[in-house]
């Protein structure tokens, strides 16, 4: 720590938080004034035209309209803050993504979704997924983990609509086949068929043979049942 030259003082860590992930107050604005104004205008337009739809959707997801109003507010605040530093190419996409993200945060806080995710392990994966700088893995490891995470997400994405919906509701929202049957207006045995279809397709994409797994993702408690 500059023992040899005590008169040097470097302001350490000042450059931190300048990555795109951070949009806290005090972040340097990258957008020139006219673009910033155009940005705010288009973001505002997207918010206005989707406000009631978003509120209804959040109320349905969160099961409570006052939570929905709070989350919607938070969504708008974040979008405006984002619009200060980055040009928004697709306001609707940003709006929906932010809404989904904050709805998940709220549901997670209430332990209603993603209950099997252990914080420590998943922080590492979340870092990898969103390219946040992590001190843990070497770049090679990070690259590999990222590719693995990518393969996993992609495999889910490629599922047909109904098996995908059933799988996500069951695995990540912790719903029983009975719950899902009601939501999707089908019978429980149909839900089970969707699940089998999803598992079969995922296995086909992700597992090489029945004996060896090709996924070195962090593994936690086994036999996670709903």
């Amino acid at each position: 720590m500059f023992r040899q030259a005590p008169h040097i003082r470097l302001i350490a860590g000042k450059a931190d938080g300048l990555t795109h992930e951070s949009h806290e107050d005090g972040d340097v604005s990258l957008l020139p004034e006219p673009e910033y104004r155009a940005n705010v205008r288009q973001v505002e337009k997207a918010i206005k035209s989707h406000h009631s739809l978003l509120l209804n959707w959040l109320a349905k997801r969160l099961g409570n309209s006052s939570d929905a109003a709070d989350v919607a507010q938070d969504v708008y605040i974040r979008i405006y803050r984002y619009a200060r530093t980055e040009w928004v190419e697709n306001p609707q996409a940003l709006l929906f993504k932010t809404a989904a993200n904050l709805a998940i945060n709220e549901l997670k806080r209430q332990s209603r979704v993603l209950q099997r995710q252990v914080t420590t392990a998943d922080d590492a994966v979340a870092d990898v997924v969103s390219e946040i700088v992590a001190d843990g893995p070497t770049p090679e490891e990070a690259m590999r983990q990222k590719q693995d995470a990518h393969a996993l997400v992609d495999a889910i994405r490629q599922l047909p609509e109904k098996p995908r919906a059933a799988f996500i509701k069951n695995r990540f929202e912790g719903k029983t086949y009975g719950d899902i049957a009601v939501e999707m207006s089908v019978s429980e045995s149909t839900v089970e068929k969707y699940m089998m279809d999803a598992l079969r397709r995922l296995r086909g994409r992700l597992v090489r043979t029945s004996a060896s797994t090709v996924l070195p993702m962090p593994r936690r408690g086994r036999r996670g049942k709903g």
Partner: peptide, 15 residues
């Protein structure tokens, strides 16, 4: 194992 591994990307898939 595969089902467990997929938990790691649950948040992204759900989003």
């Amino acid at each position: 194992d595969m089902v467990d591994s997929l938990d790691a990307v649950g948040e992204q898939a759900l989003e």
